[in-house]
């Protein structure tokens, strides 16, 4: 008898068939040990983290199942009065969205006139961006408009994006950029 894959002589289903007088062998007698032990993987989750679907603005509830610091499943939260556990196809694909191999995990940098991406350490990249913000801001600062009204701003820097971000993130973006004098701050609401 072949070994492995949940088979051993002692539980040869034919024996069980004989023992249980099961002529047809269509039911449990033919079950393998794996089948007998089968259970939903979510039952083994270390924790279940409440979340919200990141796609459209309906705001369906999600539950994220985590085991060994890895995500094992994301599905609808039945407690939500909005979605009652349902998800649309996009929401149902959230697991693939957040754990997919499409996710880039390094900072990429393209130098001026460069033909390829390069990787840069995260800290260095943030330093570089900060340096460029300062340079551009200083170079393009406008104290007043053409008529002499104070404007206290830079038109040399712009921002786009926000509708996929958290409120807290939008808040800090608006706060920092306004303090820097950036006014061209926009998001999907107008796109």
């Amino acid at each position: 008898m072949p070994s492995g894959d949940g088979f051993s002589l002692s539980n040869w289903p034919l024996f069980r068939q004989l023992k249980q007088r099961d002529l047809f062998g269509l039911e449990q007698t033919a079950a393998s040990p794996r089948t007998e032990a089968l259970t939903a993987r979510t039952a083994s989750a270390d924790r279940i983290v409440p979340s919200i679907c990141p796609y459209c603005a309906v705001g369906c509830g999600q539950l994220v199942y985590v085991k060994n610091e890895k995500i094992i499943d994301i599905e609808g939260d039945p407690a939500s009065p909005i979605s009652r556990g349902c998800l649309c196809p996009k929401g149902a694909a959230t697991f693939q969205l957040v754990t997919g191999s499409h996710r880039v995990q390094h900072v990429l940098y393209r130098r001026p006139h460069g033909k390829e991406w390069e990787t840069v350490p995260l800290e260095q990249a943030v330093d570089m961006v900060a340096e460029r913000v300062k340079r551009t801001r200083d170079e393009t600062w406008e104290g007043t408009d053409e008529e002499g009204h104070p404007v206290r701003r830079t038109m040399g820097i712009a921002h786009l994006g926000g509708a996929t971000l958290d409120n807290e993130e939008n808040y800090l973006i608006k706060k920092l950029f306004t303090a820097l004098g950036i006014v061209q701050i926009e998001n999907q609401a107008r796109v």
Binding site: K67, K70, I71, Q96, T99, G100, S101, H102, R103
Partner: peptide, 15 residues
């Protein structure tokens, strides 16, 4: 490199 699921197993478990 695709198996049609394209899950990064360092982020998720495939069970």
């Amino acid at each position: 490199q695709t198996d049609g699921r394209d899950i990064d197993t360092s982020l998720a478990e495939l069970t």
